[in-house]
Nucleic acid binder design. Structure first.
Lengths: 213, 213
DNA sequence: TAGATTGTTAATCGATTAACAATC
DNA sequence: TAGATTGTTAATCGATTAACAATC
């Protein structure tokens, strides 16, 4: 039940807070954390930490701080990371394959990481039937069928730029609503579909701006 | 000569404009582009396009628009993408190797893409001496020496989280000022060092927020 | 109780949009 | 010239910070 629309800037910080809480829980030194310390570790001001969390409820105790375990549980719930989320990846080139390894290993090693790549798609027949980290590669024609079977609502797109829009259309038509796109193109999607762009070339180019002359 | 400090939000949009101009130049249909069309293709309002560009000079003609080739040249210059920029990559795991392939192929295929990965470093002796896309892998001990020899001011960091801070310290001490970091940690660096974080797990986790309940 | 820290409101800051005179 | 579009200023919007009463 979300009363107000939470801004993207706030949502972007939630996983950072969660990561800090995971570290605090792992080190186990303290059961409580203040907005001061949480902010310091997350790279955010204490006031903003309190304001961000207050959108979702009253998780702290005045004069005391936040209970690490409790806040962790709440943040996991808010982020829907309290249960497994099946994810598809389309485009098993070197970047796609690297991401499968990266996320699958994380999933296996970390019981708190509920994002699970369960199926891969690639148009290259030579790759179909292969597995990467135990996950099978299937032909793109099977996207609608498999997405429905597996209840997939999130997908990673690592196909070449020319193929991206058509792959995304198929994914969206099949019911996928959350996309993590690595193709260097602007994608057209319905308003209820969320896209995060990881445009690595743009990021590297933007760094070049800061080269001193 | 930069009179005002340009905000990060503006800098982030410059490579997007450049990409749109590259597309327009490739298609070759028009020599002129309006802030209206440039904005539409870049996903930005026309007013913001004009305001962003105006920070750097007067590139347009009233009543006419912007000359595609001229604006392209100017943006390349502003972004320091008018000449080759040598880049190092540290951490040749599957993600690092995938990025080398991705960026090297782009560099070879696209004469306008001046970001060139010229040296790789990895602590694994089994990888040292290997090459990826023709680029040699060397031991991290050689970072200071090679960075100086090659005049490197930009590096991509794809080492495990535990190793990231120490690698970054070495890079910075060797003269690197621009970092593209894929390790899921906050890094401490001097004020004159610029970091772009590509924290892929955080991005995927933030998408999960939008899973409907 | 006294000290600490939250949750929240008001003030500030910065970025985007609207509007329009200048001018091609 | 008339129409179009820039460059720029003022208005608006949204996000962050400062401040503090509430309260543990």
């Amino acid at each position: 039940m979300r009363l107000k629309k939470i801004s993207g800037a706030v949502v972007r910080r939630l996983p950072i807070y969660l990561r800090v809480l995971d570290e605090l829980a792992r080190d186990g030194a303290k059961e409580l954390v203040s907005s001061q310390e949480l902010g310091e570790r997350a790279g955010v001001s204490p006031a903003l930490v309190r304001k961000d969390l207050a959108w979702f409820g009253e998780f702290g105790k005045q004069g005391v701080g936040y209970d690490v375990e409790h806040l962790r549980t709440e943040l996991r719930r808010i982020l829907h990371l309290d249960r497994d989320v099946p994810v598809a990846l389309v485009g098993v080139g070197s970047l796609g394959a690297a991401l499968v390894r990266y996320f699958r290993r994380r999933y296996v090693a970390d019981p708190g990481f509920h994002l699970n790549i369960v199926v891969l798609f690639d148009a290259d027949p030579a790759k179909q039937g292969e597995t990467i980290e135990g996950v099978p590669v299937e032909p793109p024609e099977r996207i609608p069928e498999r997405v429905k079977e597996l209840g997939i609502r999130m997908a990673i797109v690592t196909v070449p730029a020319e193929a991206a829009q058509s792959v995304v259309d198929t994914l969206v038509a099949s019911g996928v609503r959350l996309l993590f796109n690595f193709a260097p193109v602007k994608l057209a999607v319905p308003k209820d579909v969320h896209i995060v762009h990881a445009d690595l070339s743009l990021e590297l180019q933007r760094l070049a701006y800061y080269l001193e002359d």
